[in-house]
Design a protein around this nucleic acid. Sequence first.
DNA 1: TTGTCAAGAAGAGCATCCTG
DNA 2: CAGGATGCTCTTCTTGACAA
Length: 302
Amino acid sequence: MHMSLDTHRLRSFLHVVELGSLSAAARRAHLSQPALSRHVQQLEADMGVALFERTGRGMRVTDAGALLAERARPLLTQLEQLASEVAAQAEVVTGSVSLAVPPSVGMALPADVIEVFREAHPQVALRVVVALSGAIHDALVRGSLDLGILYQPVRSPAVRTEALWRESLWCVGGPGEFEAGSALRLRAVLGEPLILPAPRHGLRAFVEGHAARLGAGVDVPVEADSLQLLLELVRRGAGRTLLPARAFADELAAGRLSAARVTHPALERKTLLAWSAERHMSRAGRALAEVVRGRARRRKTG
DNA sequence: TTGTCAAGAAGAGCATCCTG
DNA sequence: CAGGATGCTCTTCTTGACAA
């Protein structure tokens, strides 16, 4: 026996059982009477048993038909619930996703992103790490990271980016080295030794690019691939560095560092949201990117 | 792998017949 | 006469073959 319990036919069958009439059931189901008639016939053929007695004045359900109706009703209800649950599941973002942020961005943004994302997508396992931009770039290319925040310039075609915000770099020196509100021309900044991260990091590449445009070199006697170490070395007078204001705001407020605005030209760089150009972005990744964009907009305005 | 086309199957409606 | 069954026809969907 070919047994295919077509839910469409079952619904038609239940209408006929309920109304005792094929014509009335057809009107309710928004089908023609012959269509309903065939539904019932096909169901009877599938079951191999008569489900109705045809009286000429309507349809009287048989014992087999009554049994089928009794069992089919809860089954159809369950199937409808299942379908709506599955449809709802498609709306829920699941899985895991990772984001890496350079330390110079500060801790407020990643903390905000974690808070907002966890609230919106509690079923996603979120990993946020702090790493220097070179390491973030490499992890994106390797595929061990979904999203990263990087700085201009990003030359690798394996990484796709979009701008989040712009920020200016300040020349940071030891306590009392610069008066509040002071400014330094870039050429003067480059005339002194600078403590910077290794060349593979975004900050170093950015500074060297600007120096090259001025026809100047960058004297880097000490490389430090850690923001904390960079700040500590500057505080001890080992040299100056270049950083966005957010990266040293606490140290500045506490009087442990001083800073001067850089001019001619101002060192303004774009902060970028970055992801792999070669890997598919998961739904969780897209959702996280949206949260980062949202927080970045608040950062720009606030 | 993807797009196109043709053939067949399935579903539905209209008109009409049959039955109690 | 009301209501179910059936024949015919049209439309839509599915499937398989074939080419790019």
